[in-house]
Design a protein around this nucleic acid. Structure first.
Length: 483
DNA sequence: TGAAATGTTGGGGCG
DNA sequence: ACGCCCCAACATTTC
């Protein structure tokens, strides 16, 4: 019996280092089956967006190579996880399955698999591999769930103990021979159209690049993180979000490295604290989704489902997606997203506010576009971010807080460098006019080669009008109906 | 991790 | 010299 294998199931934890479930499976000393399942058929498993598929494609190829270099093999399967696990356990005689826990709607799948394994006499061992602190481990003083970030963050810091890194297996001797899908047949790379051609210039998916980025961030941009993180033209954020989503790096690895940078004097305590609080926002998002599994499609404050959202015209929605709204900072962000699969966080708030407040369309429709186009698309973070901006979420911006895209542009991109990069047809406008070209004198536009309505669109909606419309609509249909 | 509307204050122009 | 008005500049309130 001791020659029977154990199975390790990769999900959003595509790394070999600091992987507690993998380390535990490896430590059994038994033959190891390494498995990844592309599950597009289980009800609780949200189909991956296009940008995520691009990332997964590269990340799995990188993981396959790393595993092969250690003598192992990654088995790829496509289909419902429940039947594939059951099938592999039966075929190989595996006595146990190891995985790192999930916290969103997909955890229902894991619960069913765990029950089925138990019934068949196999063990299921699960671990925390992706959060600083697991959602069920943090309660308020009165035993309730946190609804505000700051007390959540304080409680997290008070209770957290960072374990030593789980050892990376030095070798991964191949287990029993098993058929595996050829990743090429999964068609993860976008086609018709392939808009991902620019992604490769910005990203190298995989855990090695994740660790390189973290190292370089902590040696450089972190020094000016608190202020710099709001300036989209600067390279002051870590850009670790896709790596964290796919588990190519763990938040524990980030925490340890950040504290080390602090202790060695490489970075100031203030900047480290700010950065780690942003990592904790990720935990907070997962915490909220765990306690409200419907948060991905319904407003966390349910009374906001009563808001009479506009459907939005086809032209409006298309203009937003393609970066043709006539508001330069919005268009720059949407074009950066399309070109790179990523958008600076400050600009995400601006384009989301424009969508949910100025266009007054249900935040879920915007969330769906982000889901499809972001390489870091994440059910918890995406829903939390949109709901924060729309004013429907926990600890959200109040509904009457409406971003002014002109003022936001002038405040956070004062030189117009970010707009100039992503909306090149406006690049020659002086900073004074680049965020409000429709107010620029004709001579200025002419010199800059801008013809409004031709080389660059007129605003698709008047912000002053849209702001008032949003205030009236939100107030009318959400406030009075509050329980 | 807002922005607009409204209120207050104080200096300077001017009769 | 005085009162009045205007309006930045800043503070507070409101959405």
């Amino acid at each position: 019996m001791s020659d029977n294998p154990v199975l390790y199931w990769f999900r959003d934890d595509l790394r070999l280092a600091d992987n507690p479930a993998l380390a535990a499976a490896h430590a059994t000393g038994r033959p190891l089956v390494l498995l990844y399942i592309l599950d597009e058929s289980s009800r609780e498993s949200r189909a991956l967006g296009g940008a995520s598929r691009w990332w997964l494609d590269k990340s799995l190829r990188s993981l396959c190579e790393r595993i092969a270099a250690k003598g192992g093999k990654l088995v790829l399967r496509k289909g419902p996880a429940e039947t594939i696990i059951a099938d592999l356990v039966a075929k190989t005689g595996a006595t146990a399955v190891y995985w790192n826990r999930r916290y969103g709607p997909a955890r229902k799948i894991d619960e069913r698999i765990k029950a089925a394994l138990k019934k068949d006499g196999a063990e299921a061992h699960s671990f925390n591999g992706s959060l600083l602190v697991e959602p069920f481990a943090l309660k308020t003083g009165s035993g309730g769930d946190f609804k505000v970030f700051t007390p959540f963050w304080k409680a997290l810091q008070a209770s957290i103990t960072i374990p030593d890194a789980a050892p990376e297996p030095r070798t991964l001797a191949a287990g029993p021979k098993l058929p595996s899908d050829d990743i090429d047949t999964w068609d993860l790379h976008p086609s018709n159209p392939d808009w991902s051609t620019g992604f490769g210039e910005m990203w190298i998916p995989g855990e090695l690049d994740a660790r390189r980025r973290l190292r370089e961030f902590l040696a450089g941009a972190i020094r000016n993180y608190t202020d710099g993180r709001n300036m989209p033209a600067e390279d002051s954020t870590s850009r670790l979000s896709p790596y964290l989503h796919f588990g190519e790096i763990s938040p524990h690895q980030v925490w340890r490295a950040a504290r080390h940078a602090e202790e060695s004097g490489e970075a100031s305590a203030r900047e480290i604290q700010k950065f780690l609080s942003e990592i904790a926002w990720r935990d907070f998002s997962h915490y909220l989704l765990y306690h409200d599994p419907e948060m991905g499609r319904l407003s966390w404050r349910r009374q906001f489902e009563a808001v009479e959202w506009r459907k939005g015209t086809k032209a409006e929605l298309e203009a937003w997606k393609r970066g043709q709204t006539g508001y330069p900072i919005v268009d720059a962000g949407m074009r950066q997203l399309w070109a790179t699969g990523w958008m600076h966080n400050r600009v995400r708030m601006i384009v989301a506010s424009f969508f949910a407040k100025d266009l007054l369309v249900h935040w879920r429709k915007g969330e769906e576009w982000f889901w499809d186009t972001l390489v870091d698309a994440d059910e918890a973070n995406n829903a939390n971010g949109w709901q924060w901006t729309a004013g429907t979420g926990a600890d959200a911006a109040p509904y009457f807080r409406v971003f002014n895209p002109i003022l936001q542009g002038e405040k956070f991109d004062p030189e117009g460098a970010y707009v100039g990069q992503w909306v090149p047809e406006l690049a020659k406008l002086p900073p004074k006019w680049i965020h409000r070209p429709w107010e620029a004198p004709a001579a200025v536009l002419s010199v800059a080669g801008v013809t409004l309505g031709d080389t660059y669109p007129q605003p698709i909606v008047d912000h002053d009008f849209a702001r008032k419309r949003a205030l009236e609509t939100y107030k009318g249909s959400s406030q009075e109906t509050a329980a």
